[in-house]
């Protein structure tokens, strides 16, 4: 939350987002040129998601292939009014990567890297793909949680892991982990709905 918290939807970011909506909608009309443009603009974000969750480049590339094939087939169902384009795309990537990891039964105790260092990192107000008035509300609410609650929820999101895996990674009993996450989510709900 550095320079422009809750910036109005104007300028470069909004233009980039509008363009992304447009090429996603055109992809839904089976426009191959739009699809190529979509890939160029979003592959680094989506591959980053697949790579972190799968933990290996080859598998992540296979998942990425499936993700874009899914995008090609389902872009026609994308509704700009319901979801930001990058959230729609990234959710597909995250779910596919998690499906792969669970299907392959890998429970890596040593992921390729730790979760992104978000505690002090600015939530990238300059990120051209997500920029709207609400983009910072979750970040703000996460900051209000206790450290254990925040770290557990962030780790769950960025590594795509279940309660059991979370408990193992953070070396706490399962009951403690569920308590942290559930209390954290309950407080998030209050904050987000406030």
């Amino acid at each position: 939350m550095t320079d422009t918290p809750a910036a109005p939807i104007i300028g470069r970011d909004a233009v980039a987002r509008a363009e992304l909506v447009e090429i996603l909608v055109r992809t839904g009309d089976e426009d191959r040129a739009a699809f190529r443009d979509l890939y160029i603009r979003t592959n680094a974000k989506l591959f980053g998601i697949c790579l972190r969750i799968c933990g290996e480049r080859e598998a992540a590339a296979d998942v990425l292939h499936d993700v874009y094939l899914t995008v090609w087939k389902r872009a026609g169902a994308y509704e700009p009014s319901r979801a930001s384009p990058i959230t729609w795309l990234a959710t597909i990537a995250r779910n596919r990567a998690i499906d792969w990891r669970r299907a392959n039964g890998t429970r890596r105790s040593a992921p390729i890297e730790e979760a992104p260092e978000l505690v002090d990192a600015a939530p990238l107000a300059s990120d051209a793909l997500i920029a709207d008035e609400e983009a910072h509300s979750l970040h703000r609410c996460l900051e209000e949680l206790d450290g254990n609650q925040r770290e557990s929820i962030r780790t769950a999101f960025f590594q795509g892991v279940t309660y059991a895996e979370l408990a193992e990674r953070l070396s706490v009993p399962l009951g403690t982990m569920k308590s942290w996450v559930r209390r954290g989510l309950a407080r998030l709900r209050e904050c987000l709905e406030a």
């Binding site: 939530p123 997500i130 960025f158």
Partner: peptide, 14 residues
């Protein structure tokens, strides 16, 4: 809500 976190997800070129 959780989708907001994608903004800070590290990128990696495919």
């Amino acid at each position: 809500y959780f989708g907001q976190l994608f903004a800070v997800w590290p990128e990696a070129a495919a």
